[in-house]
Computed example of a mutant assay.
Amino acid sequence: MSKLKKMITLLVKLFIFGCAYLMPKKKNIWVFGAWFGHRYNDNPKAFFEYINKNHKHIEAVWITKDQAIVDALTREGYLAYLESSFSGMLVQFRAEFAFVCQSLHDDLYPACISKKTKVVNLWHGLPLKKIMYDVFGDDVTNKNIVGKLFDFLSPYEQIRNDYLLATSIETQNTLSKAFRLPKSRTLITGFPRNDVFLNTIIAPISTIDKPYQCIYMPTFRGGIGTECDLFAQYGFDVQQIDAILKINNIVIVLRMHPVNKPPQYLIEEIKHSSNISIDSTADIFDSITNYDCMITDYSGGYFDFMLSGKPILFAPFDLEKYKQQERDLYYPYEEVTLKPYAYTWPQLIDNIVAIRQEGLSCEYQKDYNLLKQKFHQPLGLNGKLFSELLYQQLRDI
């Protein structure tokens, strides 16, 4: 895009931003978006559906860049609009609250959200690896006068979060610092997506005659849409592993981070496997309670899974390399994870078989419960869902 076209676009968006400021807000219009406007999942989805079900006086609207999502939600009886459609822009102009899980400028149409609309970042996971300002700090890019002019004309693109969620005092301390928000605006409510662990009858761990279902959920690496290969170089032999799993009646489902994809060779090899598969559904939290065990490396998803009380196995195949090339961690890895670790796939399969056959040691269960207490407030507070706790705090704002 030429500089002239960029300038025209900026002026148009600045005009829209001005309209958003002048437009009176309507109490009880709440807009929701997630994952760069291309997905219907995560905390915004969970809270959106909770509001639609339990607080019908609120006009909850899903905003997206994807017409297929609009069509699917409309068929289900929800309100949903494209972000830059007339209806989508109008509802964003008038919103009392805007809910995102990445950022305002990623998940919604930021020029339509004035500073009179309260932005609540529901975020997308508890951090083991460093995030936000704890990663990029106060890095300042020296720009020429044109670059500075573009920044001046696009105030809606600035990072903005009026409120943020946490799950305990520990995570409130971490997240408020990472986002540079006061603790008073970092609300300890728990994550709406974790309501599934409270309002669902969690399937018991499979007996020996039923498949023991494991989900492998590594953290992201590299950029958006890149392949993530944590398999061949760490001994992932599809035929050999599949045979061991079959003998022990174990199933492994591979679930890559939303910004990554599995290598193509692996997809082809797994097509011929009976006990290994790849999950690419829109929202893992629709099925997360069905699994008997989670496997991860540095993904904060294990903090969520702790609410199930089921085993979590750690496979930090590339721990030192990850810390050097990707992200540093908030805690020494050994302090907030559970042993035994696996550094290759054969070791990991041995650990899965051992837990399947022998169960959890007393020491493991003790450490598990201590971590759960650290990262989650007591469950069942007055018998309320995390979404209800969030709703109540928002009503008091």
Score class of each variant (00 low, 15 high):
254 L>S: 06
139 D>G: 11
142 N>L: 04
193 R>P: 02
171 T>Q: 05
161 N>Q: 09
365 Q>F: 05
158 Q>T: 13
240 Q>E: 14
82 L>E: 03
81 Y>I: 07
86 F>M: 11
277 S>N: 09
327 R>T: 00
227 E>C: 06
167 T>N: 05
66 D>Q: 10
351 N>M: 02
366 K>T: 14
259 V>Q: 14
382 N>W: 03
193 R>Q: 07
181 L>D: 00
225 G>M: 03
75 R>L: 10
281 T>R: 10
313 L>F: 06
144 N>S: 04
265 Y>M: 13
287 S>C: 14
183 K>I: 05
329 L>W: 05
56 K>G: 10
109 Y>M: 13
14 L>W: 14
100 V>I: 14
94 R>Y: 00
331 Y>D: 11
116 K>L: 12
242 D>Y: 07
104 L>T: 02
293 C>D: 00
97 F>I: 08
28 N>W: 02
286 D>P: 01
53 K>P: 04
285 F>V: 09
297 D>N: 00
92 Q>C: 01
50 Y>N: 01
172 Q>Y: 03
340 P>C: 01
319 L>I: 11
110 P>C: 15
116 K>H: 09
142 N>Q: 13
186 T>G: 02
364 Y>N: 02
172 Q>A: 10
213 Q>S: 09
171 T>R: 03
58 I>C: 08
339 K>N: 08
231 F>C: 04
149 L>E: 02
185 R>M: 13
179 F>R: 05
